[in-house]
Computed example of a mutant assay.
Amino acid sequence: MSHSVDQQICDGWPPEAWQDVVVVAAVSGGADSVAMLRALAGLSADSRRNLVVAHFDHGLRERSVEDSQFVAELAQSLQLRCEIGHADTDLHEASAGSMEEAARNARYEFLTKVARRCGARYVTTAHTADDQIETILHRILRGTGIAGLAGIPLTRELAPDTTLVRPLLTCRRRDILRYLQALGQSYIDDETNRDIEFVRNRIRNELLPQLAEQYNSRVDDAILRLGSLATETNSYLDSLADGLIETHVSLREDFVELNCYELSLLPTLMIRTVLMRIWRRMGWPEQDMSYQKWDELAELTLRRSVANLCLPGGVIATRAGASLRLSRD
């Protein structure tokens, strides 16, 4: 193994865990995703059989057609199957913030379809440690809890039979650029990454350099360490919450019932964690569940009187006696 990027991928996601199943690699053509593809192709025992390249054209850049052609040619040079997708609607019509969200949703919908079509067990994206740093700092600025401080997880469920994996999550971008240089591999330089219209780009290009220059030269390491500690804390709280769900919560197909008498003896932090785990198990939308909403729901668990609470995503919470029922319209 000739480079630290290969080694870091192997440490976090050993090839023996994925080289006998189909893996869809999401490749934009940028440095990170190209490095990921080259590394996976090199580590796979039979990349032509188990690796599929997927590229989604959002239609947001003038050179998007050239980007698609670059990825297709790269896949061909590696003798890999390549799937190209295109946005069905004009994402430019959205505002800066919602456009990013709309683009992300469209991209993951495409990746899910490709995975289903190819029978893929895994889909990989090229998030790096630098993305992790930016994500955690962004969440701090917007306001977040312990779960948010954990940042981007290494894996998450994309579909019932497909797991999303981020094999470069411990790799720094500077190492990725050295890796590509050593391979003599070209990549696309996306000029939109420097567009300060987007908050994420301002964090990357303005705020982080200023923090490093004026406050802490190792701010990147400090943020990554914070994320690691938050991940450990979350894992512990989640394991406790799962045990409490098994003993004090009834999960049905269309509703959930909680034993409030037992749960009310717990700290509010633990009650909120139980509720968040229930949301994930039921597949209910979490995005609009603010800290205030989680706190209101936890407070409802502690009450003894009859009360109702309407929550984002069409979830209704009804407290009656010692029980709290959660259902979705």
Rank of each mutant, 00 (worst) to 15 (best):
D238C: 03
R156E: 13
H3Y: 12
R304V: 04
V53M: 05
E16P: 01
T233D: 09
N308A: 08
P312D: 06
V71S: 00
C118F: 04
L300Q: 11
H138Q: 10
L74H: 02
L91Y: 09
D220Q: 13
L208R: 06
C260R: 06
S186D: 15
L263M: 09
M289T: 07
C82T: 01
V114H: 03
D11P: 00
G119C: 11
A159L: 10
P14W: 10
I196C: 05
S95Y: 06
G97E: 14
I196S: 10
L74K: 05
Q210C: 07
H86K: 13
Q19M: 12
E262L: 06
E157V: 11
F70C: 10
A150M: 03
L51E: 00
D11G: 04
A17E: 14
W13Y: 15
A147Q: 11
S2I: 12
R48D: 12
V123G: 01
L169G: 01
I223Q: 04
G143M: 08
Q181M: 06
E62F: 05
E66G: 07
L265N: 08
G29W: 04
V219M: 14
A317C: 10
P167V: 01
L168Q: 05
I316N: 09
I196P: 10
E253Q: 13
T162C: 14
D254V: 09
R194S: 13
L91P: 07
R142K: 15
Q69W: 02
I133S: 00
T155V: 08
P15D: 09
V219F: 15
L302T: 10
E191I: 12
L244K: 03
R204G: 07
W18A: 00
R178F: 10
K293P: 00
A150Q: 05
L229G: 03
L265A: 15
Y108R: 02
A45S: 15
N205P: 02
E73G: 11
V24I: 04
V199Q: 06
A75S: 08
R303V: 06
A102I: 05
F56L: 10
F70G: 06
Q69G: 04
P285D: 09
L91A: 11
C260Q: 05
V315P: 03
S47I: 03
A212F: 05
S235R: 15
D190S: 14
R38C: 07
I84W: 00
L302C: 12
A120K: 00
H248A: 14
Q8R: 14
E197N: 11
E296Q: 15
L211Q: 04
D288E: 15
